[in-house]
Amino acid sequence: MPSDEDPTLSEPQPVLSPLTTAALFLVLTVDPGGEPVVRELLADLAGLQRSVGFGHPQGRLSVVAGIGSEAWDRLVDGPRPAELHPFEELRGARHHAPATPGDLLFHIRAGRQDLCFALGSEIMNRLRGAVSVADEVTGFSYLDMRDLLGFVDGTENPVGRAAAAAVLIGDEDPEFAGGSYVIVQKYLHDLDAWNRLTVEQQEQIIGRSKLTNVEIDAPGSHVELNTITGPDGAERKILRDNMPFGSPGSGQFGTYYIGYARTPSVTEEMLRHMFLGDGPFSHDRILDFSTAVTGTLFFVPPAAFLEDLADQDEQTASAAAQGSLGIGDLKHR
């Protein structure tokens, strides 16, 4: 099992960074012909983050980049991660988890929103004309780490060695050790309907006390349906970094769901329980008040993998130059 101290792993991107109070989520599609620009940006991403964040060390600025299944072969000359595939659309009896476009994910985090904005602006300045924006969400920490439904979010996140073991790929896919998979979804909340419920009704849907955040006995609750166990009976974990977002003026409120995992199958099983049901429960009742409007799966390569992407274009250019030289030599013979 990998850990945050396992020397055999390639250096991961900062997926294990502590939760922050601000975030920016950018989901992009790569325009035809934009691949070289994207590769160059991905190779420079860590340096770009350091430049923007250098003068503000207390801001804890970080960025994680993910690549979608359809874009992988366009951007990477080589093997694919073993479990990289498009997001699985789910259609339940009452609720739908759509699969939506996304070739690139940039998950930008900081203790200050202006730092997220600054780094996001630099990324988009570099990519302008090479990509199209599929989705952009500004997330914020709400009150005492609560979502806009009023409940604390992320309580069950693993920490330390357990987090690394749950999130980082090990020797099961050695070419991509230190990488991770991430699924993102944007949920829109019907807060008017939610707030018409009593606190007790809300707690039965979530599976926790709203005031104290302690788990309660609530069959079929969100907590219960998202508790996944392996063949050995041990609970299987993912790392969530969900963030609230909203616009009081337009009346749009929601949660941006983002879950990192060593294998996407764990997150996908959670989503199947939510949307398709489990046992006697037809669906997660939180979906009666929260509608998924996006859904995409990405692979998060190790940091060094991104830095090497620019070499592909140099090698291609070098090979093309050598080929041209060979043709010219033949003409002069």
Rank of each mutant, 00 (worst) to 15 (best):
M1P: 14
E5P: 09
T8M: 11
T8C: 09
P12V: 14
P12W: 10
S17Y: 10
P18R: 02
T20K: 04
T21V: 09
T21Q: 03
A23D: 04
A23E: 03
F25E: 03
T29P: 01
G33I: 03
V37W: 06
L42P: 01
A43Q: 09
A46Q: 14
L48C: 14
Q49W: 08
R50H: 14
G53C: 08
F54H: 14
P57G: 10
Q58F: 11
R60V: 04
L61Q: 05
S62Q: 08
S62F: 07
A65Y: 01
A71E: 04
A71M: 05
W72D: 04
L75N: 10
P79Q: 13
A82H: 14
H85I: 08
E88M: 12
R91T: 15
R91L: 14
R91M: 14
A93M: 09
H96L: 04
H96Y: 06
P98I: 02
P98K: 03
P98C: 01
L104A: 04
F106T: 05
G111H: 10
R112F: 11
R112H: 13
Q113R: 08
L115R: 02
F117C: 06
S121Q: 13
S121H: 11
S121I: 06
E122A: 10
N125Y: 11
R126M: 06
S132A: 11
V133D: 05
D135I: 09
V137Q: 09
T138H: 12
M145S: 15
M145Q: 15
L148T: 08
L148M: 14
G160N: 02
A162R: 09
A163W: 03
A164G: 12
A164K: 02
A165P: 03
A166C: 01
E172I: 02
E175D: 12
E175V: 06
G178W: 06
V182A: 07
V184E: 06
Y187W: 08
N195K: 07
L197G: 09
T198W: 00
V199M: 12
G207A: 13
G207V: 10
V214K: 12
I216A: 07
P219M: 00
G220H: 00
S221G: 02
H222C: 00
H222T: 00
I228Y: 01
G230M: 03
D232C: 05
K237F: 10
I238R: 05
R240A: 03
M243W: 00
M243D: 01
S247D: 15
S250N: 15
Y260M: 10
A261T: 12
A261S: 15
S265V: 11
T267A: 12
T267D: 03
H273C: 01
G277N: 06
G277Y: 06
D278P: 00
S282K: 13
F289N: 00
A292F: 02
A292E: 01
T294R: 01
T294I: 05
F299C: 04
A303R: 12
A303V: 11
L306K: 06
L306D: 07
D311Q: 15
D313I: 05
Q322L: 15
Q322P: 03
S324Y: 12
G326F: 12
G326I: 09
I327Y: 14
D329S: 13
L330W: 08
R333C: 10
